[in-house]
Amino acid sequence: MSVLVEISGLRKAFGPLQVLRGIDLTVSRGEVVCVIGPSGSGKSTLLRCVNLLEEPTGGRVVVDGVELTDPDVDIDAARRRIGMVFQQFNLFSHLSVLDNLTIAQRKVLRRGRAEAERVARENLARVGLAEKIDAMPGQLSGGQQQRVAIARSLSMAPELMLFDEPTSALDPELVGDVLGVMRQLADEGMTMMVVTHEMQFAREVADRVLFMDGGVVVEEGPADEVIGEPRHERTRTFLSRVLDPTHHGPGDPTS
């Protein structure tokens, strides 16, 4: 399998705060990588460095042969092929669902109206929301908004999809629909990097799981190994908190 994402020696600091302390990671085409780890460990920052929403302090990020950390790179061109889905959905609130899906196709990819609409309809159908095409974002539930956001990214025909805790802002009963769409995307062969706290999803869908803590990758491997039989103490502690949150010992700092 060919390499799509190649990250080496990635560092990121916010002022004196070292958030990423040297990350090396390659993602192959069609691979699904889930990133797990405690709050503040740098998961979002890592993901945001992959499409340069955050400017790395050091190291290299190469996506599909283009070095994003090269100062002369056409970052807008590179981002067209990297979809991103946010925890807070971030649909354009002044635009209808259809316009959310067509605006970048038309203005960035310069597609004609008819083609952009056709692509939009296709992708809305893919996430099961064909009938919401004329709705405004405010009229949709959180789960529906997130699926529209996924369809919006897919309309750009990306090579890579980044998901930053896509279900964390959702009511529990809406999580399943969004995970279902992501599962289907994975089955269709999309390359995905997913920051998530949904361990069940990670176990079933991820080809590889990364456990991050303190700005480094502590442990990585197949989902069943990292989540099922973690080798590192920190991973075990984290998982026991996430999987069984009611049973911390007394004085546990996360309570």
Partner: peptide
């Protein structure tokens, strides 16, 4: 988040 969404769709 609105700008971030726009930029990650490739908008300058």
């Amino acid at each position: 988040g609105q700008v971030e969404a726009a930029r990650s769709l490739g908008m300058p």
